[in-house]
């Protein structure tokens, strides 16, 4: 199997970039691209101390798999892809998502990695609740899903 997708409870274990890179390695692959998403300390002018990630895990993993399959259709069946998204509360700097793409050449790896993160942000059932240093918390406004989950509209307010 050349695709690994998973929703992981971050209280059970941190997300691991090396695990992702190891998965996408292959003898015929000269390129590996890695994307790490982390909690940042400021958003929309407010100081953030952490983010809680809420996930409808079965559908999220289904959507990750579909997105990875689309990437293989676009950039080759030999593409190896790894996606793990965190669930639960993370402090600033904590990894919320790790994506890796391995391919024979760098162009496909870069493009596939970018495609997977952008599609996940638009299509996958994941929600962020930001926790601010003043003690307040808010759910981040996101992208409304279309009926079939393959497009989106609306505005994202968090990178």
């Amino acid at each position: 199997m050349n695709i690994h997708v998973e929703v992981r409870d971050v209280t059970q274990g941190k997300l691991d970039a090396q695990e992702a890179l190891n998965f996408v390695e292959a003898p015929g692959h000269g390129a590996g691209a890695l994307f790490l998403g982390a909690v940042r300390n400021r958003n929309q002018g407010r100081d953030v101390e952490g983010v809680s990630y809420d996930v409808f895990a079965p559908l999220a993993e289904q959507s990750f798999g579909e997105i990875c399959a689309e990437a293989q259709d676009k950039w080759g069946e030999c593409l190896r892809l790894f996606v793990v998204h965190g669930k639960g509360r993370l402090d600033v700097g904590g990894l919320s998502i790790v994506i890796a793409a391995g391919s024979p050449h760098r162009d496909e790896a870069f493009k596939a990695c970018r495609y997977v993160i952008e599609e996940i942000k638009n299509r996958s059932p994941v929600w962020k609740q930001e926790h601010y240093t003043d003690g307040d918390s808010e759910w981040v406004q996101g992208h409304a899903l279309c009926q079939h989950g393959d497009q989106s509209h609306g505005q994202a307010h968090h990178g």
């Binding site: 998403g37 990630y53 996930v55 409808f56 079965p58 559908l59 999220a60 998204h85 919320s96 998502i97 993160i117 996940i120 942000k121 638009n122 299509r123 996958s124 059932p125 994941v126 929600w127 962020k128 759910w139 981040v140 406004q141 996101g142 992208h143 409304a144 899903l145 989106s152 609306g154 994202a156 307010h157 968090h158 990178g159």
Partner: peptide, 12 residues
């Protein structure tokens, strides 16, 4: 089936 209501998403 198991159903869910999905508000606008903000993953990543």
């Amino acid at each position: 089936s198991i159903f869910a209501i999905l508000p606008p998403v903000s993953g990543g």
